[in-house]
Amino acid sequence: MECTQLPLLAKRLEGKVALITGGARGIGECMARLFCKHGAKVVIADILDELGQAVQDNIGTEHATYVHCDVSKESNVENAINNTAAELGNFGIRVNCLSPYFVYTEVTKEFFKLDDAGTSKIYSNLKGAVLREEDVAQATLFLASDESKYISGHNLAVDGGYTTINPSFGLFSPS
């Protein structure tokens, strides 16, 4: 399924470049597809070469590129960034929104183990709502777009209220 882009007025990431680690499956793949749909040139960085290449081919090579990248190895990350700059030109990194996303993703992996349908069975205070890969991708799309250009110092929790109702996080004291 090739990437079908939205009309120009609806493209929230037109002219932007996104380097997405873990882009071969799960939330990362969902983000790659959504960012492409909104006009971004996407670099899929992952250690799963066959899956990453398949995602690139499925989206279309005019919109996506795959690069092997093990984020635990600094040289791999440097290579991914250098390849992105070489192929797609200079690009800026929205550290103020991407870093919290990466940290949040890693920390919450154990809390939000997704099933094969991409949903979580975790309890939330939103009756009947379940976390989907698209929910995280949509939040990240917003943070990567110009719509969030004046937002800083904010942690956007995409967890259905889990962190606000779970006292073990120590975010509030019991009354």
Rank of each mutant, 00 (worst) to 15 (best):
M1T: 02
M1P: 00
E2S: 12
E2D: 03
A10R: 11
K11I: 03
K11G: 02
R12L: 15
R12F: 08
L13C: 05
E14F: 14
K16A: 08
V17L: 06
T21I: 02
G22K: 08
G22S: 04
G22T: 00
G23F: 07
A24V: 01
G26T: 01
I27V: 14
I27W: 08
I27E: 02
I27P: 01
C30R: 13
M31N: 04
A32V: 03
A32E: 04
L34N: 01
F35T: 02
C36T: 03
C36Q: 02
K37D: 02
K37Y: 05
H38R: 11
G39A: 11
G39E: 04
K41C: 11
K41E: 03
K41D: 06
V43Q: 08
V43N: 06
D46I: 08
D49G: 05
E50F: 08
L51N: 08
G52E: 08
A54F: 04
V55E: 05
V55Y: 11
V55W: 10
Q56A: 15
T61L: 13
T61V: 10
E62Y: 04
E62D: 14
A64P: 01
A64H: 03
T65W: 05
T65L: 13
Y66P: 01
H68S: 09
C69Y: 07
C69P: 01
C69D: 02
D70R: 09
V71L: 09
K73F: 04
S75L: 05
S75Y: 00
S75R: 07
E78H: 04
E78T: 07
E78G: 00
N79M: 11
N79H: 13
A80N: 07
A80R: 07
I81E: 06
I81C: 10
I81H: 10
I81L: 14
N82G: 09
N83G: 10
T84G: 08
T84A: 11
L88D: 01
G89A: 09
N90W: 11
F91V: 02
V95W: 15
N96S: 14
N96Q: 15
C97F: 09
L98C: 15
P100N: 03
F102S: 13
V103C: 10
V107P: 00
V107S: 06
T108F: 14
K109R: 15
E110W: 07
E110C: 05
F111V: 00
F111S: 09
F111Y: 11
F111L: 15
F112D: 00
K113I: 04
D115I: 06
D115P: 01
D116Q: 11
D116R: 12
A117V: 00
T119N: 12
T119L: 10
S120R: 09
S120I: 00
K121H: 12
N125M: 13
N125V: 07
K127Y: 13
K127I: 05
A129Y: 15
V130M: 12
V130C: 14
V130Q: 15
R132I: 00
R132K: 15
E133Q: 12
D135A: 10
D135Q: 06
Q138L: 14
T140R: 07
L141S: 08
L143Y: 05
L143S: 05
S145C: 08
S148P: 02
S152N: 11
A157I: 01
G160P: 02
G161A: 03
G161Y: 07
Y162E: 00
T163Y: 11
T163V: 07
I165A: 07
N166V: 00
N166D: 05
G170T: 01
L171A: 06
L171N: 14
F172Q: 08
S173F: 12
S173I: 04
P174N: 11
P174R: 12
S175V: 02
